[in-house]
Every structure is written in C-alpha cells, then in structure tokens.
Design a protein around this nucleic acid. Structure first.
Lengths: 137, 137
DNA sequence: CAGCATCCGCGTTGATACTG
DNA sequence: CAGTATCAACGCGGATGCTG
C-alpha cells in the first residue's frame, strides 16, 4: 500500500470520468453521500462492523470515546442511508445487533482503501502540518 | 465500477489488516485525516484540482455554491495538511494558482474511488432514505 | 441492555463589507 | 484578483438523567 504513488494515472482517470459523467457539483451526490460517512463517528462504526456484526454495547466498547447519544444517532443515520441493518432479538434483557448491508459492504471497498491510506500516511500529514504552522509562526 | 460487490473480500481484508495493524481508535489517524477531506468543500476542491491546477477565481467558479470565506479557509487547511500547494505570481492584478502536491495526488487514488462510488450509488442511497422515512412516518 | 429526552456550549458556516 | 475582518445563525456533539 506504500506504492499508491505509482497508481496516479488510475486516480486521474477516475476523477476525469467523474467530472465528465454529467457531474453536477450543485445537487452534489458526493456531499450527499460523503457527508454521512464523514461524520465524526460513522467511519469508525462502519469499520468495526466490517469485520463482524456487533451489538449496541459491543459497538460502544469498540469505538471507545463515543457517547451513547452519538452512537444511537449515527447508527440511525447509517441505517437510514441503507449501509447497516438492525436486528432486534426479543430476549430478556433485549439485545440488538447491527450489521453491514450489501450496500454497506460495497461502500467499504473504497472506504477501507481510503482508511488504509489515512493510516499509512498519517505521519506525513502531521509533519506537513507542523512545518506549515512553523512557517506561519 | 458496478461490480464493486464482487470485490468484497478485498475490502474485508483491508479492514481487517487496518484493525490489526495496531490501529487505535483513540488517537485516531482516520478521523485526523478524514475530518479534513470530508469537510463540506474539501473533496470538491480536491476533485477540481485533480484534473489541472486552478486559480482562486477559477476554483470559485468550479465549485459553484462555495463562499469566498470557505474557499479561502478550506484551501488553507488543505495546504496545511500538505495536499495542495500555493503559487503566487507577482503580476498585476495578482494571480495565485493552486495545485495538488504529490501527497495530494496520492490521496486522490482512494478518494476518487470513493467519489466514484458515491456517484454510482447515489440513487440507491436516496431510495433507502425514502423507504426509511416512509416507515418511520 | 439499549435506548430516548433535555439542556447547552462551541465550532462551523454564511452574509456582508472592506483591502493590497 | 485574491483575499481579510466582523457578525450572526445554526447544528453538531457532549453531559446528564430517565425508561421499557
């Protein structure tokens, strides 16, 4: 994954084809879709669910600093967009399991690649920031 | 790009390897990097710059609904993270050109794939939302 | 266990006006 | 042309307490 630089032509191609395919930035599908998965928590929840289904409590433990409120809300948003499904088991005490839908798994293909990039290049970004802040005092 | 569903194993692999590679959700590189590129405008600006360098005014026209303030601010943030570079030409009137850095181009590999997914699957997401809102009244 | 309801601060965004 | 400065509105997200 360190050789992403060698794949630049592909990226330019995709970008160009996106721009050409009647891509209108006004009623923007990019924002409409990405705004959801780019919230503070969505990508982390999707990442956790990509390995296996999780119950509410397990998710809360898997995504350490999330509050109950945000977990509930983000799960609802992700379900609304069709990325995850909710399965209630009428046990006592009740248990609810969340899992990726087919569309959610399909989304994880490019999303996990992006997450992988973030993990690989995080250090470089940090360095770039420090350098920038240094110059601008 | 319609056959992304067939590539699920790859996604699960990447996700799993990400999770295993000492991935700590607390000091999260994902959020640290993604928060920037997932702002309301960043992805659109990067997309515009991925085809060719743009001047400030050209960018403002390429990303229709952006305000001057947000364009300036987002450009500064992207430059700070090392994704774009700023080139000032001492002409009269002054002109400033923005272009992707090597790291920015590298980022566009996975990012443009994600954008492509968004474009391809936007309709499905909209349908999922309508269905959800219908049931929940 | 898995939520919902409420309150509230603070950051992000937008509108507007001004400048080198 | 390419910004900066200021103000106001909005909503995300956190903290807390309560429920089936």
């Amino acid at each position: 994954m360190a050789d992403t630089l060698n794949k630049l032509p592909d990226a330019a191609q995709i970008a160009e084809s996106v721009m050409n395919a009647g891509f209108d930035m006004r009623n923007c599908p990019v924002r409409d879709v990405l705004d959801q998965i780019s919230g503070k928590w969505a990508s982390l929840i999707l990442l956790a669910l990509s390995t296996e289904p999780h119950r509410f409590g397990a998710l809360k433990r898997a995504v350490p600093d999330i509050s109950q409120r945000m977990l509930t809300q983000t799960l609802k948003d992700l379900q609304r967009d069709g990325f995850i499904s909710r399965h209630v088991f009428a046990t006592v005490p009740p248990s609810v399991e969340y899992r990726l839908t087919d569309m959610g798994r399909s989304l994880m293909v490019p999303l996990s690649a992006l997450i992988g990039w973030a993990v690989d290049n995080h250090a470089q970004v940090v360095v770039a920031r420090e350098r920038f802040d240094e110059v601008a005092q």
